[in-house]
Design a protein around this nucleic acid. Structure first.
Lengths: 163, 163
DNA sequence: CGTAGATTGTCAAGCGATTTGACAACCGTA
DNA sequence: TACGGTTGTCAAATCGCTTGACAATCTACG
């Protein structure tokens, strides 16, 4: 029996998404720890995100992660000091910087990808290749939905008044 | 074009789960705010969780949410002061307490459920009833997987030595 | 051109959620 | 009855993040 049989109706999507994500994140940090990257903490996942920030500007990273530039700067400062990335001047814009992964940074990104792939392999074994492929496909479609795409990460500020 | 076409392979499950969950959480707080529960913040979702904590012990809630008893106590203290729940003595155990929702607490839980149902309705419209049903079913199976069920939320402590 | 407004990164201060540490009260069991 | 484990809580500290302010720079428009 799973946790989702209850008197209040069918399982809610929110709960169904949370548990797997928690597991994945936990295994990501565990694998990073095992690989020797013990100074990477979950907060840094805002930087090591899907579209890798290599060559991007801190400001864009902040917007993409849905946080303020200051918060992103805080994380980037940590990761720079730990030799995971560098912030170099943008030749095209004196104000701006560009983020570049170091060797260590690329290694972390690689380790994260491998961790997720390992989980995916486990899930593929448990669910069977067809169901797993179907699940991934449906999740891609879900992410491509207006309902999801519309409400993408936005910095907690920006009240977006209607003119 | 969606964000998941990239040179590094198929979309990673982690990223596919994160975006929808972020959207759902954002809409949950928005709907709660609109319903007048302006003092509920995302942190409280650790309490208003899927198996509702009504009648449960704070310690079990903490374990279920993967946080320390102190952190859970902090949140429960807030919610008690805001009249969303009460902590009453457990008649069977003098040390322990039991959590009971107040009317307001039940209203919050109801509002959350309705918010998610609304999102589900939107998604059902966009994906079509069959695909949406399939997605939910696959997510249930995913949650029932050993890979997911095994690594359920655990308090950040407990190093679990092996002897 | 030149200047007004927006953008970028950063310093500083503060807050809130969470952790660690310690502790008294209580339970279960030997 | 003594003892190890559990429960809730007080206190202090940490950490991720926000708000606020600011100089430097870019951009658009007169």
């Amino acid at each position: 029996m799973n946790d989702f049989e209850s008197p209040i109706g069918p399982p809610l999507i929110g709960a169904l998404l949370r548990a797997p994500l928690d597991t994945i994140r936990a295994r990501m940090v565990a694998d990073l720890h095992d690989a020797g990257f013990t100074d990477i903490v979950p907060a840094h996942f805002a930087v090591f995100r899907y579209p890798p920030p290599d060559g991007r500007r801190p400001s864009d990273c902040a917007a993409g992660a849905g946080m303020t530039r200051q918060a992103m700067g805080y994380l980037l400062g940590q990761l720079e000091q730990l030799d995971y990335l560098t912030r170099e001047d943008d030749p095209a814009d004196q104000r701006s910087k560009r983020i570049y992964f170091t060797k260590r940074g690329f290694a972390v990104a690689q380790t994260i990808r491998e961790a997720v792939r390992k989980i995916e392999a486990d899930l593929e074994t448990e669910l069977g290749p067809e169901q797993f492929a179907q699940l991934r496909e449906l999740l891609v479609k879900l992410n491509d939905t207006d309902t999801i795409r519309g409400q993408r990460p936005r910095p907690p500020t920006a009240p977006s008044a209607s003119p």
